[in-house]
Design a protein around this nucleic acid. Structure first.
Length: 507
RNA sequence: GGGGAUAUCGUCUAGAGGUUAGGACGAGGGAUUUUCAGUCCUUAAGCCGGGGUUCGAUUCCCCGUAUCCCUACCA
């Protein structure tokens, strides 16, 4: 039977990177096996604090960004549509009814108050917490129902609970962890249908996984403990559960499940910061999976599809190392087509106010032309010089800022840079000579600039560094940056001379 | 309190009875060079503890310890 896997996110906002990784694993496995990758929305939790309807767009965006497109989902539909659980409520209530009829589940009329009191006393006595199965007894259940009926004057609300077997064990066959057994008597009579008519995860997942013909459930390790309940729902419904695959959790530096406390974890943040899809993809895959003895960590997506097997899954939690991600992102930035990086950088420059917004579609041609020459061409000349220094795209604004900002000495100049180089004795002579000789250059190239600067240095009788550094500071306001000559070239003759002149006037 | 899982450099990991315990990020040093970055070379850094099994355990088993996860009308 061919592999069918699913990614089942909930719309709670921008996806957590852990979920993104789960999506990647499912997608890779499906692609490696030539199987089917299904994405369905688990929107059965309607409580306002957790239900974020717009989250669905973030989920879609994350899948598109990474290129892990499903074979079937709510966007394109598919043979098992709909792929949104809130649109399948009848299926779940049918299943619940079937379970009640067969005695595998029962209605529970316990109030939240009773449940809370029960839990409180269990905790106070140091006893294991869990539902006391009060309503599993038909007599007690009916008594409670009548009591509430009388008090409330109408049929009381109820939930449906799974009647867990009271004996025996549930064996979970986990592909990465082997067989795990759980004692049934320790499992709760889980609520499977809520009083609002929505199913809980356990019912909905079992029903849908069965309906979709899912063969492997690949999901985070945080689901491992509750897996026997899911398995029991399958059994109760008379179905064979899929195979389970529980990759390890992604944790923070403190070893706890990665969350906001550890820094940004949401997909949207990585997008804003300027992480490349291939870097995120590559990095996330390696958090819980390894290509074995290959001793490599840089893989293209096709290479990963080729290599991705469940045997490569690791089993201990992985700390999310932002530094390593940055390194990898820098690596991919450097290996990208510069044009692509430039295009991705422009929005950051615009947002930082370094370059203006492009003229609208109905702008006049001369205006468009001016924008192309003054803004785009300049950006295209300047950004490539900083590409090897970028770890994330958003850094571009700091990196190329000096190219765009208006500098007026000492405004905009780095203090330490001034202290170090704007007081050297030969400064005025140097700047004067540069302004004059640069002005006379007919060809403004890195080579011609270098030749000019070198000869000025020789005339002044100072070491190369003694002319390089002051020149850089005068022209850029800082001590770091790309090679001086390409920097001046990119800056342009006019801008360079203007800046040098402004400095000369003030020192 | 109960249950489950996990345990190799600081971090991600390779290893599947005998290895100089390998690679990567990060850190240190060096080279290149006009700075930074990059690139190249290089150094330090690890098998949780205790019992077994075995001629021999990082590796297999048990116990302990530690950590994490679950323990909701959330997923």
């Amino acid at each position: 039977m061919s592999v069918r896997v699913r990614y089942a996110p909930s719309p709670t906002g921008s996806p957590h990177v852990g979920n993104v990784r789960t999506a990647i694993y499912n997608w890779l496995f499906a692609r490696h096996e030539g199987g089917t990758f299904i994405v369905r929305l688990e929107d059965t939790d309607r409580s306002p604090e957790r239900y974020v309807p717009e989250g669905i767009f973030d989920i879609e965006a994350s899948l598109r960004f990474l290129g892990t497109l499903p074979d079937a989902w709510w966007v394109t539909g598919g043979p098992d549509a709909p792929y949104v659980q809130s649109q399948r409520l009848e299926t779940y209530s049918d299943a619940a009814r079937k379970l009640i009829d067969s005695g595998k589940a029962y209605r529970c009329y316990c109030t939240r108050e009773r449940l809370e009191a029960m839990r409180a006393s269990q905790q106070a006595e140091g006893k294991p917490t869990g539902y006391d199965r009060h309503c599993r007894d038909p007599k007690l259940r009916e008594a409670l129902r009548l009591q509430r009926l009388e008090a409330e004057g109408q049929e009381p609300s109820s939930v449906v609970r799974l009647a867990m077997p009271l004996e025996g064990v549930t064996i979970l066959h986990d592909v990465v962890r082997g067989d795990i057994s759980y004692e049934n008597r320790l499992q709760d009579d889980q609520v499977i249908l809520k009083s609002d008519g929505f199913p809980t995860y356990f019912l909905a997942a079992a029903v849908d996984d069965h309906a979709f013909g899912i063969t492997h459930i690949i999901r985070g390790d945080d689901w491992l403990s509750s897996a026997p309940k899911l398995v029991q729902v399958f059994h109760a419904l008379g179905w064979e559960p899929p195979k389970f695959v529980h990759p390890p959790l992604i944790v923070g530096p403190d070893g706890k499940k990665l969350s906001k406390r550890h820094g940004a974890t949401q997909f949207a943040w990585f997008l804003e910061q300027g992480y490349l899809p291939e870097a995120l993809f590559n990095f996330l895959v390696l958090l819980g999976w390894s290509a074995g003895s290959e001793n490599r960590e840089l893989f293209s997506v096709p290479e990963l599809i080729e290599r991705f097997t469940l045997e490569g899954m690791t089993q201990s939690p992985a700390v999310f190392d932002y530094e390593k991600l940055k390194w990898m992102n820098g690596h991919y930035i450097r290996r990208s087509e510069p044009g692509r990086i430039i295009g991705m950088c422009l929005p950051y420059l615009r947002r930082a106010g370094l370059i203006p917004d492009p003229p609208g579609p109905d702008a006049k041609d001369p205006e468009k032309e001016a924008y192309r020459i003054n803004v785009l061409d300049y950006a295209r000349r300047v950004i490539p010089l900083e590409i090897e220094r970028m770890k994330v795209l958003s850094e571009v604004t700091d990196l190329v800022g000096f190219f765009f900002k208006e500098l007026s000495y000492p405004e905009g100049y780095d203090e330490k840079a001034i202290a170090k180089w704007m007081g050297v004795p030969h400064l005025k002579q140097l700047l004067t000579a540069e302004i004059e000789q640069f002005g006379a250059l007919t060809e403004w190239t890195a080579e011609s600039i270098e030749a000019t600067v070198r000869s000025i240095g020789a005339d002044l009788g100072v070491k190369f560094g003694e002319v390089i550094h002051p020149t850089r500071v005068a022209a850029t306001g800082q001590t770091v940056g790309p090679g001086l000559f390409e920097t001046l070239w990119a800056l342009g003759k006019e801008r360079t001379i203007n800046r040098l002149r402004a400095v000369l006037e003030k020192v």
